[in-house]
Each structure stands twice: as structure tokens, then as C-alpha cells.
Design a protein around this nucleic acid. Structure first.
Lengths: 195, 195
DNA sequence: GTCTATATGCTGATAGAC
DNA sequence: GTCTATCAGCATATAGAC
């Protein structure tokens, strides 16, 4: 049965990652100390090293987990067959997924330069894999003749920047619901690709 | 005439700001030490405090100067009279101005959380002033009946995010010239607002 | 105007007691 | 599994010599 002292590894591990996520998003990776993370979890600084090799791994694990979840969630998202309904599915999915985890999104964009070279390359690979999902939809749309994109790669980057931008201003309980925002953004996406 | 030793304040001051700009953009404000900045300038750390009150002021001065330049440059930019040509002028201006100073743009977006409360509020005021320039154009376009924007504030944020996003992928000497990029983005902006 | 030297405090990470 | 204690190093900022 339950032990009285010490062993909380199944609880403490996730708590460490949650605390790091929140603190990194608020103050930035470089500005957060291991002691701050430990205090947030309710342990001493030394105890963190039972759950992470070092501070760098803590950051990398958060970013990799985020990108893995993103790719898996899009893989499992219901999508239509034609390019236009796939594009709509992507736009709505991207907004929803990103609004659901603002801290992880913020870190994934802001802390890339604090990754080691190897870790950076791995995260970049995952990011490009996600971008290429949208790119493929746009190419299909062009082949079907339902959209206009003079440069698919460039349109991909423009649309992702526009959609991700929602995170910078959206506030829960604000003027517009998430669905209302997604409706308007989908209209703008459609217009931007001439559909 | 020219003194032999010491007095280089007219040179060193700007050099300090240039070095800080470059290093903050590369590694992040919190990760850069005053010693690193001093080394880049070619002086000892203590000498920096002749040119800045402290590290925080160094960051704030860079961001404020950037926003001031942005607003002044847009004010002086030639613009048409009708809303549609003003919108085109804004889109092309925004891309050009931001591509010309990637480091300052990067810092202005990434280091907001490292500003003191008061400094943050000041920078935010300037940023909103710039956003409201685009907002006014969109409202005029609606009044003229040449664009469709179900929510002007939201469209403002979407367009700015899309346009600023160019900085994340554009590389000098790449596949497309700045003008070619601006042409394509202007098409997307026009489509997004149904013009 | 710039230097050296220094005060004071926090950093990441480890060793060993319990 | 967590704690305390500690190491070695670097941080910002200042004081005073030149």
C-alpha cells in the first residue's frame, strides 16, 4: 500500500515539467533558475535532477513533447477529401490546438535559440514536418484548381504566421468565442488563397 | 584638436547600443552579460555605465527607439488617398521596414517580458498606436465599401501577424527579392479583406 | 573616458546524510 | 526520494586610480 514518506516520483515528475513550462513561458528560459522551478514544485533544487539530466533537457523535452502532440493531433483530426475542406480543417485545427496550450506554443517559438545545436535540429525537423502538411494541402488545391498561390512555400509561411498570431491577442472570456474567431480567420485564409 | 586618449563618447555610445542590439537578438536579453557587450565594444564592463543607467535601460532604449522610428517612417511614407491604396502602402511599407532591421524587430517582439512594468506600458502604447494606423485604414475601406472585414480589430491583428512573419523565414540573397515577396503578400492581404 | 578591483549575491550541478 | 551543504563560477553594479 501507500508509503508514507518520500516516493512521489509519479506525481513530482509531471509537476516539474508543468512548473518549468509555466515559468519558462512567463519569464523566459534563461531568466528562470532551477531553484525557482523547485520552489514552485515544493522541493529543493537538488531533487529536480532526479527527473531531468539538466536544465537544457528540461527545455528540450517540453518542446519535443509539444511538437509530437501537435503532429499526432493533426494526424488524428477528421479531414475531408477535397483540398478546400482539408484547408478549412487545418485552419480550424491550428487555431484550436494552439489556443488550448498557449504556454507551450510560446516556448516553442521563443526559446529555439536556447536549444543546443542538436536539439534545435530535432525540433526544426518536427516543425518542418508540420508545415509540409499545409504545403501539401495547398499544392493539392492548386492541382484541383480551387486556389491561387503564386508561391506555395511562401503562402504556407504566411498562413501559419497569421493563424498562430491569434495566440498573441486572444484572451479567454473576451469579446469573441474561439469558434467565432475561427470562422473569421477561415474566411481570411480562404480569401488569401483566392478561393 | 583631437585628444589622444580616452574620450570617444560620441563613438562608444552608439557602439554600445549596436553591440547590445546584436547580442540581445542572437542570445536573448537574459542570456547576455554586460561583460559580453563590453567585450564586443572593446571596453571593460564598468565603462558601459557611462552610457547607460543599467542593463534594463539599455533594452528599453533599443525598443523605444525602434518604435519611434517605425511610427516616424510610416508618417513620412507616401500614401494614396483612397483606402485601398493606403492599405497597399501599409503592407509594402511594413514588410520593407521590418526586413531592413531584423534584429530590432526580433527584440521588440521577444523581449517584452523582460521590460519593467513601466517600460512595458510605454512600449505597448507605441505598438498600439502603430496598429491603430492599420485599423483606421480598414475602417475607411469598409466605409468606402471596398473591403470586407467582419471584425476590424481582429483583421488588423491577423494582417500584422502575417506581414511580420516574413522576418522569420526571409533570407537575403534567397529565391525571391523583397519586392517579389511584397507583391505576393499584397495579393494575399487584398484577398484576405475581400478586395 | 576607461581601467582595475571589488562587493554582494545568485547560478547549475553534485555528494552524501537520512 | 528528498534533504542539506557545498563547489566553482559568473552576474550586476560601484569605487577609486590614472
Amino acid at each position: 500500500m501507500a508509503r508514507k514518506t518520500g516516493s512521489h516520483s509519479e506525481i513530482t515528475g509531471p509537476k516539474v515539467r508543468e512548473a518549468a513550462l509555466s515559468l519558462f513561458a512567463q519569464h523566459g528560459f534563461a531568466a528562470v533558475s532551477m531553484r525557482q522551478i523547485a520552489a514552485e514544485v515544493g522541493v529543493q533544487a537538488g531533487a529536480l535532477y532526479l527527473y531531468t539530466k539538466d536544465k537544457q533537457s528540461l527545455l528540450y523535452d517540453l518542446m519535443q513533447a509539444h511538437m509530437d502532440e501537435l503532429l499526432a493531433a493533426w494526424r488524428d483530426e477528421p479531414k475531408g477529401n477535397d483540398a478546400l475542406s482539408r484547408l478549412e480543417a487545418f485552419a480550424r485545427f491550428h487555431i484550436r490546438f494552439h489556443l488550448e496550450r498557449p504556454d507551450a506554443v510560446f516556448i516553442a517559438y521563443m526559446e529555439l535559440r536556447n536549444l543546443s545545436d542538436e536539439n534545435f535540429a530535432n525540433v526544426e525537423t518536427l516543425r518542418r514536418r508540420y508545415e509540409s502538411e499545409l504545403e501539401a494541402i495547398l499544392r493539392a488545391g492548386q492541382a484541383e484548381g480551387v486556389i491561387t498561390a503564386p508561391d506555395v512555400r511562401l503562402t504556407t509561411m504566411a498562413l501559419i504566421a497569421m493563424l498562430t498570431g491569434v495566440n498573441t491577442w486572444y484572451r479567454e472570456g473576451g469579446r469573441l468565442s474561439r469558434d467565432a474567431v475561427a470562422d473569421i480567420y477561415w474566411d481570411m485564409v480562404r480569401g488569401a488563397v483566392g478561393a
